[in-house]
């Protein structure tokens, strides 16, 4: 062990004989990163509900992938059956004799992939841009801010329509990216503001003083503080992706090659589902599917917020009693 002198400060801890093998490290990591956050999140009913809903959609996607329910096809059933009239077609059928449940299930993998792509793209780019811009400052900040301003000034919807028609995206992943093509700009600006505040915190100063490189500081000191905000905005971006896709499919401006909830909604609307109750199941099924997924994601994000809430985590580890009476903080959902 290196000996310190009276004038030098030794930052190293004392060496012990105790050794930690990889199993212990793995266990510790699991407890710290998975078990405890999961425990905290699960204590919240919103997380439970959100998780159940999202898992339900994942199950629907699996049902489609493994072919456990019939594929949607015309003339596969009696035409215009109402919901719950025939349990072979629980959600009813369309004018063309398509099983509505099959339509919903068929669309689920497409929608989930699109939502994931939209969320990851929007928040990923925003986080990168926002943190670099906010932390580095100076010329880097100016350039990134100027680029963000440019993207923020482009009207989103017309841009998406033009890109959709030009690129004719068939992949849900590409479509998700196109739908949130300039969503990152506004979010990036918000993240930059938060980083500007965090970068002056004492622990960040300390990291800098120790000569820690920028990437590590951003990864270890700044990003964890942003995570609640990022996660919540991931859900917002995902929800925006669903709504944007459905709206544009409904309006018929996006080219399509398969089924999805927006197209189903469009068919139902144009076949007169607004008139009378005969076709109402055809209209309601995709609406419920859309709203259900959006609600599930929002509830999940609210619950996830607790994972990153230091007060809640402290309470779990029993390190502070003072927080007992503190009202729980949750991120407000707009």
């Amino acid at each position: 062990m290196q000996m310190s002198t009276d004038t030098d400060v030794n930052w190293q801890s004392e060496q012990t004989d105790e050794t930690i093998d990889w199993r212990d490290r793995l266990h510790e990591g699991f407890v710290l990163r998975v078990y405890e956050p999961a425990l905290i999140a699960w204590n919240d009913r919103r997380t439970q509900t959100g998780l159940v809903i999202v898992v339900l959609y994942l199950c629907m996607a699996l049902v489609d992938l493994f072919g456990l329910w019939r594929d949607a096809s015309t003339s596969q059933a009696p035409r215009m059956l109402g919901a719950f009239q025939n349990w072979s077609y629980p959600l009813g059928t369309t004018q063309s004799g398509v099983d509505v449940l099959a339509l919903i299930i068929d669309s689920t993998p497409f929608i989930l992939q699109m939502v994931l792509a939209g969320g990851v793209w929007a928040t990923g780019v925003a986080v990168i841009v926002g943190t670099i811009s906010g932390y580095k400052g100076g010329l880097t900040d100016s350039v990134i801010t100027a680029i963000s301003d440019f993207f923020m000034s482009i009207p989103g919807l017309p841009l998406v329509i033009v890109l959709g028609i030009t690129l004719e995206p068939e992949s849900p992943l590409v479509l998700g990216v196109i739908l949130t093509i300039n969503y990152w700009a506004g979010l990036g600006r918000s993240i930059r503001s938060q980083v500007l505040s965090i970068r002056n915190e004492s622990y960040v100063e300390a990291s800098r003083a120790m000569g820690t490189n920028t990437v590590r500081i951003i990864r270890k000191d700044i990003l964890p503080n942003l995570m609640p905000y990022v996660l919540v905005n991931f859900v917002f971006a995902a929800r925006y992706t669903i709504f944007a896709a459905v709206a544009l499919y409904f309006l018929g401006v996006l080219p399509y090659t398969g089924q999805n909830w927006g197209i189903t909604l469009n068919y139902a609307y144009n076949q007169g589902a607004l008139f009378g109750l005969e076709a109402i199941h055809w209209l309601l099924a995709p609406i419920i599917a859309i709203v259900g997924l959006a609600c599930g994601l929002i509830l999940l994000s609210q619950g996830m917020d607790r994972i990153f809430n230091p007060r809640v985590r402290t309470r779990l580890t029993g390190e502070s009693e003072s927080v007992e009476s503190t009202p729980e903080h949750t991120t407000e959902i707009r």
């Binding site: 015309t74 003339s75 004018q95 063309s96 401006v253 076949q271």
Partner: peptide
Amino acid sequence: PAGWTDWTALTNT
């Protein structure tokens, strides 16, 4: 064509 209601049903079939 997108948006032609009856044609969409015909094309699907």
